[in-house]
Computed example of a mutant assay.
Amino acid sequence: METEHYFYVLYCKDDTFYGGYTTDPERRLKEHNSGTGAKYTRLPSRLPAKMIHTEVFSNRSEATKAEYAFKKLTRKQKITYLQEQGVKEWD
Rank of each mutant, 00 (worst) to 15 (best):
T80R: 13
K71G: 08
N59Q: 11
L82P: 01
T23I: 15
M1R: 11
M51V: 07
T16V: 12
D24K: 14
Q83K: 15
R28N: 08
F57Q: 01
A49N: 03
Y68C: 09
K50V: 02
R28P: 00
K39S: 11
F70H: 00
T64R: 08
L82W: 03
L29E: 04
S34F: 01
F7L: 04
H32G: 07
M51P: 03
G19K: 03
E55P: 01
E31D: 15
T3K: 13
A69F: 03
Y21T: 05
M1V: 14
T22W: 05
Q83I: 08
E62F: 08
P25F: 08
G35L: 04
R28H: 12
K30Y: 10
D14C: 09
F7A: 01
N59V: 09
P48I: 08
D14K: 04
Y81E: 00
F7E: 09
K39A: 09
R60N: 07
D24P: 05
A69N: 12
T64L: 08
E67D: 06
T74L: 12
R46F: 02
T22G: 05
E26L: 15
W90V: 07
S45Q: 13
L10P: 05
Y18W: 10
A69L: 13
A49D: 00
Q85T: 10
R42W: 02
T36P: 00
T22Q: 07
R46S: 00
A69K: 14
S61I: 12
P25K: 04
H5N: 11
K71P: 05
A49P: 02
P25N: 09
E4F: 06
Y68P: 01
L82H: 00
R46T: 07
E89R: 11
G37Y: 06
A66W: 06
Y21A: 08
C12G: 09
A69H: 09
L82M: 02
E89C: 05
T41C: 06
K71I: 07
T80L: 15
T41L: 05
Q83T: 08
P44G: 02
K72F: 03
K30V: 05
A66E: 06
R28S: 00
T80W: 06
C12P: 06
K72I: 05
K50W: 04
T41M: 09
Q77C: 12
S61M: 10
P48L: 02
Y18R: 01
Q83D: 10
P48A: 03
S34V: 01
K76L: 13
Y6D: 02
T36R: 14
E4T: 10
Y6R: 04
P44H: 01
Y8E: 07
Y68D: 11
F70S: 04
L82T: 05
E89A: 12
A69T: 13
Y81L: 07
A66I: 09
Q83N: 13
E62Q: 14
V87H: 05
G86W: 11
Y6N: 08
Y68F: 10
K39L: 10
T64Q: 10
I52Q: 06
H5Y: 13
E55W: 07
